[in-house]
Design a protein around this nucleic acid. Structure first.
Lengths: 303, 303
DNA sequence: GAGATACATGAAATTATTTTATGTATGGAT
DNA sequence: ATCCATACATAAAATAATTTCATGTATCTC
């Protein structure tokens, strides 16, 4: 259903996404002629050109870029608006845009797969859309409405969003095969010993590594798997979530450094925009996440 | 121009505003038949009834109320969206919804009339809409987008809004004819004397009346003129902006109590929603307000 | 220069919306 | 109870808006 439909804007956004009229006709399900006319009409009523096109290629004009961004956002609002009205009927519809942090799938204490199964098992007609991004990006997208919910360790919480604690994630310090500390069988390295080796960290969301050099890490990676690979080179020490590193440790590619002395805990949150909960799909999903989430024991036992 | 038009929603909102189909046909410029069909189509696609109608009278259903509120807000966003796209053309259009506090027109140090004149003198095609409300209400309306700018003394500032100091307003303590303190010719009353008389205040935006009883005022009024009337009864002491009370004092209906000892200053702000300034009309108006505003001397001289 | 691509355009066809004309139901007056 | 006026619903006709079809123009590639 489309209440706040606007053929012209939707056409323009699709054309921009498709990079041309001819390609967009399949996405829109209308002929290229119709697209040509719609874009012409839109440009006429706006009074300026939105894109340069022709055999020479397709390109948005500067204003076209602006209109594209705003129109995208407006159409998203319109879809959410429609979904909200449909939900008054009792049915749960619309799309639900979920953002999660890296490597959330193996997080113990939060079974996201189960949460998604539960949500899917409800009588609903919701189109799910899941993306992975850094906490900062997730925050940004929640604010603009590009996302409805996000699950990540939100270190900086902002007033516009609403946060709910979900579970803890334990980070430990690891080294890779070839690292001087890799061969220490069962022994522990002295903290001051550890401090002299180069560190790698995630480029966003740096842990406050108490006891280690607080300076710039020697290397960083935007992605958990990428970070693990860095550590696995044997050139760096680096923190990883225990649940994530486990597979690597079992594979003999990583080894924990110093055991219980070098462990940190971060909290995962479920974040939504304030007042956004009036979309039923959102609060239902939040409920499913909550149910698939058991707070781990306060004192983490040995892996 | 209407890009994000939706005949159905607009029809529904207008019908609700008009309280019936027959009346709405004049507002919408279409026949009652067309309205009937549009509302039926809207209800059909939503799957629920929006209003009860007929000879028995017109009434929104419960869901209708919800849809009405949301649709109003959505249509407002759509209008602002359109205005934003039009402004990319260079012209300044759309509507500009301004909210001001009570009695802002006589505020010295801020010539709002002049600001409006300046704005009107610019080449633009903007539809102005000015409302008067309490700071709390203005804040609420800025957040929802019902207002674009507001001018008032905002004592509680919130993160979502952006505030800019405009000017000071001096408040003094007054009594009315018939009040025991009214006849004190040139003399001052002792502060502890003053404290025993009942006070009246504005129901919102209470001044911190240093030196006076901080308890509940004996009377309150939501409006400046109403407050002045309360004081003029001779039954209460009360604070008023000096610029506002002047006319009453000259008319012999009010008299200042205690002169320089009983004066308070509040700051007027111009508030907008963060990131809202990309509507050109808004920033132009803000500029006009700024230019029509001279900060008064730090130490206020005698009236 | 031929062929292909990418979009524009006029006329016809189709689809959507509105009006006209009339119907139904209800409250109030007699 | 009957009649009238009000308020909305509906079918059919009229009008308007949109889309397709068929074809045209320009440009890029070879």
């Amino acid at each position: 259903m489309k209440l706040l439909r606007n053929a012209l804007l939707e056409t323009f956004v699709t054309v921009a996404d498709c990079g041309g009229f001819s390609e967009a006709q399949y996405a829109l399900g209308i002929t290229q002629s119709a697209i040509s006319i719609r874009i012409r009409d839109l440009e006429t009523s706006l009074g300026y050109r939105l894109c340069d096109r022709g055999r020479g290629g397709f390109r948005l004009t500067e204003r076209g870029e602006t209109v594209y961004r705003r129109a995208r956002s407006m159409l998203r609002s319109a879809r959410d608006f429609d979904a909200g009205l449909m939900e008054l009927r009792g049915t749960v519809t619309g799309d639900l845009r979920i953002g999660v942090a890296d490597a959330v799938s193996s997080l113990p204490g939060l079974n996201l797969t189960q949460a998604l199964q539960r949500f899917g098992a409800r009588p609903n007609d919701v189109q799910l859309d899941i993306t992975v991004a850094s906490p900062a990006e997730l925050t940004q997208q929640l604010i603009t409405g590009a996302l409805h919910v996000a699950i990540a360790p939100f270190r900086n919480q902002i007033a516009d969003l609403e946060y709910e604690d979900l579970c803890q994630e334990e980070h430990r310090l690891y080294c890779g095969a070839g690292h001087p500390l890799f061969t220490l069988q069962g022994q522990e390295a002295a903290p001051q010993d550890i401090a002299q080796y180069p560190l790698c960290q995630r480029s966003y969301d740096r842990l406050p590594l108490a006891g280690l050099a607080a300076g710039e890490p020697a290397a960083s990676a935007a992605n958990m798997e990428a970070l693990a690979m860095l550590i696995a080179t044997g050139q760096y020490l680096g923190p990883l979530p225990a649940h994530f590193a486990d597979a690597w440790v079992r594979g003999g590619r990583l080894r924990e450094v110093n055991g219980p002395e070098m462990r940190w805990v971060t909290t995962f949150h479920l974040a939504t925009r304030r007042g956004q909960m009036h979309r039923r799909a959102i609060s239902l999903f939040a409920e499913d996440v909550r149910r698939s989430c058991q707070t781990p024991p306060a004192a983490p036992g040995p892996g």
